[in-house]
Design a protein around this nucleic acid. Sequence first.
DNA 1: AGGTATTGTTTAAAACTTGAACCACTAGGA
DNA 2: TCCTAGTGGTTCAAGTTTTAAACAATACCT
Lengths: 167, 167
Amino acid sequence: MTTRWLSPAEQRAWRAYIAAASLLEDTIDRQLQAETGMPHLYYSILAMLSEAPDRRLRMTDLAETLKITRSRLTYGVTRLANDGLVRREGCHSDKRTQIAVLTDEGTAVLERAAPGHAEQVMTAVFDRLTPEQVGQLEEICGAITRGIQGEDPAACGEDLPWRRRSS
Amino acid sequence: MTTRWLSPAEQRAWRAYIAAASLLEDTIDRQLQAETGMPHLYYSILAMLSEAPDRRLRMTDLAETLKITRSRLTYGVTRLANDGLVRREGCHSDKRTQIAVLTDEGTAVLERAAPGHAEQVMTAVFDRLTPEQVGQLEEICGAITRGIQGEDPAACGEDLPWRRRSS
DNA sequence: AGGTATTGTTTAAAACTTGAACCACTAGGA
DNA sequence: TCCTAGTGGTTCAAGTTTTAAACAATACCT
């Protein structure tokens, strides 16, 4: 296969992306770390749980929506559980599965952190973008995600990804 | 200060971004790790050096363009130096500064890795984007970067960032 | 000279990631 | 029932990376 290279415009876009992504992750992580003592990934775990029905999610499903390994998730949830923000629960129908449940304290922490986080995202990102650009960003990122995930039609759940594979 | 929340459209864009960025970093890192044994950051160090005049850059300048701390860079360059891909050199005019130089072996490794990396970026990103979207992406990321970096007019070098601050 | 800012490294501690091994359980036959 | 394969989740050990603070050396300014 002959190699396909990036065009100059693509080069520029790619570099701009790398710089922005790196800076952004840094900024968000730092703010969240300062305000809540946890990195962005852990905040995301809490956020996912908070939006799930009944604030609970199977470990595997959670790992899947966050696109991380189960091992990594176990590590994170253990930490969050030690801090009392999340609780583990067994499952009646399948005793193998564990369910992560957002505790009241976890909810409180999340609600306390949310404003600062939102503010940070606003100033870092959206204050600089026109409404058209917001739409463009969503469109572009969606295309990238679909591309990486291999065009699997079942994976295009867009909104709420917590459907059991086998009900 | 009253909290500013993300609008629904901004919400969607932000989540799309988080998902795409996370997936993308994972994909790129994994491919680079497999093919070259180093993570993306280290590849970027080599890439930056390879494009600098004379393949050499001051540590601080390098850290600045890569948006990472000097400490982090020192760590990375040490590893790359141990692998023989980069060499450190002193500076006559200012004995404090160290200059990282891409070795011939480093150049070779980079040239060997570049096609696979380019291919990966193409399939993961640009194969899915229209030419307009490429431009939009650059524009958006540039805006974000400028926003985070605090509108410093001197920081808008856009193209080749390796200008000494003084001299 | 003396004080201050820069450059870059070091250090120790902590956080994180990975991969493999592992246990417990479920499911599907024979 | 028993056996086997597969799943869900955790644990473990090892390695990598990150951070923050402290440090040494040099430069700059008055």
